[in-house]
Amino acid sequence: MATLLICEHDNQSLKAATYAAVTAALALGAEVDLLVAGEGCAAVATQAAQIAGVRKVYLAEAAAYAQGLAENLTPLVLDLATDYSHLLAPATTQGKNLMPRVAALLDVGQVSEIVAIESPTQFVRPVYAGNALASVESLDPVKVITVRTTAFDAAPASGGNAEVASLTQVHDAGISRFVKEERAQSDRPELTAARVVLAGGRGMGNKEHFALLEALADKLGAAIGATRAAVDAGFVANDTQIGQTGKIIAPELYIGVGISGAIQHVAGIKDSKVIVAINKDEDAPIFQVADYGLVADLNEALPELAKAL
């Protein structure tokens, strides 16, 4: 049997999450095929075919697939599912939206956000906001899985030469339609794929102080993140939230500023290689997980840091 991975892309290029999910798919030990579904996304399929280790790429192009509506993509995945023992997707909002719908119609469960593969039927996944790791055996004939992409290295983008097969059958359930999209306009890297992440918490005090973080982010080529408290306070956009119910990140360098370190936030950063905390409260719990802690006022520390880099 083999593995089918549903690719994450924006009709122009593959998202970094896909490359990490390919590594997880290959770790299952069987042949790996990819599905690229979208509109005008032939170039994405070409890109996918070059990933080392991929056997075949299915390309499904239709207006009904353009925005990744789960109602339309599910029957497409089900068409292919009979040939596979494992169906995978990255645990992005897209993968989380689609895969349980596929699983339910196959009458199987889903193993969500796996962080390790112990065997083709056994997986490790975090529960209780990452306060526990569960080893789970899937008892279903088909394993439907989402992959926490920060837990797997990116597969090499080149070295492969997979065949691209076009699928012509179009599914349009006709029960949902795309209205609009508001993408955050930013030249910064994606939060979940950035090498450096700067995050601000309630201690940032106001929106204007985030400008200090932005100045620093420009120097470091970093992405900007935030705690729930900072988002709730309206300092930054919702999609910058890091933590149990926001994004899970694992950058080389994380710098948290004015962040106390609630367990729900720490759940989202604890796999970062190096954690730096800057907080004027020396008892802030974030210092207990930080490699380097600096007790300082952000108004002084941030400009000084921007100058020193």
Binding site: Q67, L69, T92, T93, Q94, G174, I175, S176, R177, F178, V179, K180, E181, E182, R183, A184, E190, T192, A237, N238, D239, K247
Partner: peptide, 12 residues
């Protein structure tokens, strides 16, 4: 709330 922004859909 999707990765990177907001998406609006109309559902029957």
């Amino acid at each position: 709330e999707v990765d990177g922004g907001l998406q609006t859909l109309a559902l029957r």
